[in-house]
Amino acid sequence: MGWRSVIISQPARLSVKNRQLLLEQETGVTATLPLEDLSVVVLETPRAMITSALLSELATHDVALITCDETHHPNGVLLPYLPHSRALRAMQKQLALTVPQKKRAWQSIVQQKLRNQGECLNRFLPGAGRFLFDQAERVRSGDPDNREGGGARYYFVELFGRDFTREQDDWINAALNYGYAIIRAAIARSLVGHGFLPAFGLHHKNQLNAFNLADDLIEPLRPLVDGLVRAQVRQGCDALITADKAGLAQLLYADVRMNAGVMNVLTAIEHMVESLGRYCENTMPVELDWPIILS
């Protein structure tokens, strides 16, 4: 599994040479990167050219290629095409999940998201996470009381201030959206690699969304992005700079705790998806494995 993320922010030509990514910039700078080392490539500049041969190699090596819009925010992702050896079986098991199974899985996801939000909040406001921990214990199957939504309203106000909303066009939201998009792409990459259909979610079911399942699984990891943004928030600035984006992409290598121990986010995503696979395969209860943010 790849371990390196690459952000292309300057005009460049990307191709493949000797089974490596060859980067050639207009300034004359060149660099090569082994394809097996890569996990995510972000094309941030509109002046990057990429060969079809490299696109094919990226897919073969299970690398997520992320494109960006004119505002330099991720808007698309190229994923490998069903590389799993038993993709049909994985899809059949996924689609066969019952409504109660989906509701129990969503309950588990929301509980861990609330706990992680509580841990994140306690870093900046000791004791403020108690409400979220309490809410996590009260989540029922399917979260019919929408404790996720209630927790989010409390959490974001405490974390970023009473005037903050997710609809604002500011640096905080730009950073949050960028960080979420990077992790979402990594989750989608892993889901496809394990034979899942990302469009079919456990809770999310937007017909215009090709990554509903990724949007389910990202929930416990969102507080990891929130914490970095809160720690590095820059007032009076709306646009992200290259250093901001690089820092957010590095979250893929931040440590979290899983049942198997402490590992980086990329590895944790693999464990998350594998646990979902076991959940789909078994009729008996199987524990889902979600990341725990380290305090």
Rank of each mutant, 00 (worst) to 15 (best):
A59Q: 03
T67K: 06
A105W: 02
I50Y: 04
A96N: 13
A64N: 01
P80C: 02
R89A: 11
L54Y: 07
L54G: 01
R104M: 02
P74S: 12
V63C: 10
L55K: 10
Q107T: 00
I50D: 06
T60P: 05
P80M: 01
R89H: 07
S85Y: 14
T51L: 05
S85M: 13
S56E: 00
P74E: 07
Q101S: 13
Q92Y: 05
L54M: 04
L82Y: 08
I66A: 06
L97K: 09
H72T: 12
A96G: 14
S108Y: 00
M91W: 08
R89T: 11
C68M: 14
A87Q: 06
K103I: 00
L65S: 01
V77Y: 12
I50M: 09
Q92G: 07
S108H: 07
V99Q: 05
T98C: 13
R86D: 13
E70F: 10
I66R: 04
R104H: 04
H72C: 13
H73S: 13
L54R: 08
P80N: 04
K103R: 10
S56Y: 05
T67C: 04
A87P: 03
S108Q: 02
T51S: 15
M91H: 08
A64D: 05
T71S: 09
A105P: 06
H73M: 14
L97F: 08
S85F: 15
L58Q: 03
H72N: 07
P100H: 09
L54F: 02
T51N: 14
R89V: 11
R104L: 07
L88V: 00
L79T: 00
T67L: 07
L78I: 13
A64V: 08
D69S: 15
A48C: 14
P74F: 10
L78G: 07
Q107R: 08
A96D: 13
L55V: 03
A59W: 04
H73W: 12
P80R: 01
R47Y: 15
L58E: 01
D69V: 14
I66Y: 08
H73L: 15
H72Y: 06
P74Y: 10
K102D: 00
Q92V: 04
M49V: 12
K102A: 04
N75S: 14
N75E: 12
R86V: 04
P80S: 00
E57V: 00
A64M: 00
R104V: 02
H72K: 14
E70T: 04
A64K: 03
M49G: 15
V63R: 11
G76A: 15
S56R: 06
Q94P: 10
T60I: 09
L82H: 06
A96W: 12
